[in-house]
Design a protein around this nucleic acid. Structure first.
Length: 173
DNA sequence: CGGCTTTGACCCGCGC
DNA sequence: GCGCGGGTCAAAGCCG
């Protein structure tokens, strides 16, 4: 599983919205923003062959996933079961999930990335004095998850980790 | 009233 | 086998 760290610091002027950059570390001049503002995810990675080959259904998914996919392993997240009785056991279906972490300098950790999230858990982690929050895309059928926590070293930063692939285009409908 | 938070309990994998 | 760490569930409350 891969984790990409993208740090954004308004101090750095040489910011550039990725267009075809290697996505390792970007610096975006921002103050208070919305991820969706500078994240032209759609054209950030557009048609990643690997992504396409992974047999994704309808969707272009979200960059986040594509980024991860380009890392080499495609992942198919099957929650397997939308019927009743589904339980956590279903999860074994999961392959390796791709993850992408964003590190953002921000006061608030609820950055609006255009999707509607439903929080489903909070946890205090050992290596950090800060809690970690768990969110899930509230679109039916979409199993994308997101985790948000403050950087333990720099509380000014917020680390957001996306996991999974959206099975729908834009934000919730 | 319906959807989302909250929060403690529960579950699971892993290391000892 | 047990305990710990981390992730998830779900009941109840909150808020629009």
């Amino acid at each position: 599983m891969k984790v990409q760290l993208i740090s954004m610091d308004k101090q750095n002027p040489n910011a550039n919205i990725p267009g075809d950059t290697p996505m390792s570390e970007y610096t975006v001049p921002e103050t208070n923003f919305e991820v969706s503002d500078f994240f032209e995810l759609d054209d950030w990675i557009e048609e990643d062959p690997a992504f396409v080959e992974s047999g994704e259904p309808q969707n272009p998914g979200y960059t986040v996933n594509e980024v991860a996919n380009s890392s080499g392993n495609s992942s198919v997240y099957l929650e397997g079961d939308s019927s009743s009785g589904g339980s956590r056991r279903e999860k074994k279906e999961l392959k390796e999930l791709d993850k992408v972490a964003f590190k953002t300098k921000s006061e608030i950790e609820i950055l609006d990335d255009g999707f509607k999230w439903r929080k489903y858990g909070k946890k205090m982690v050992k290596n950090s004095p800060n809690p970690r929050n768990y969110y899930k895309c509230s679109v039916e059928g979409c199993t994308v998850k997101k985790r948000v926590e403050r950087d333990k070293d720099d509380q000014r930063y917020v680390v957001t980790t996306y996991e999974g692939i959206h099975n729908h285009q834009g934000p919730q409908l």
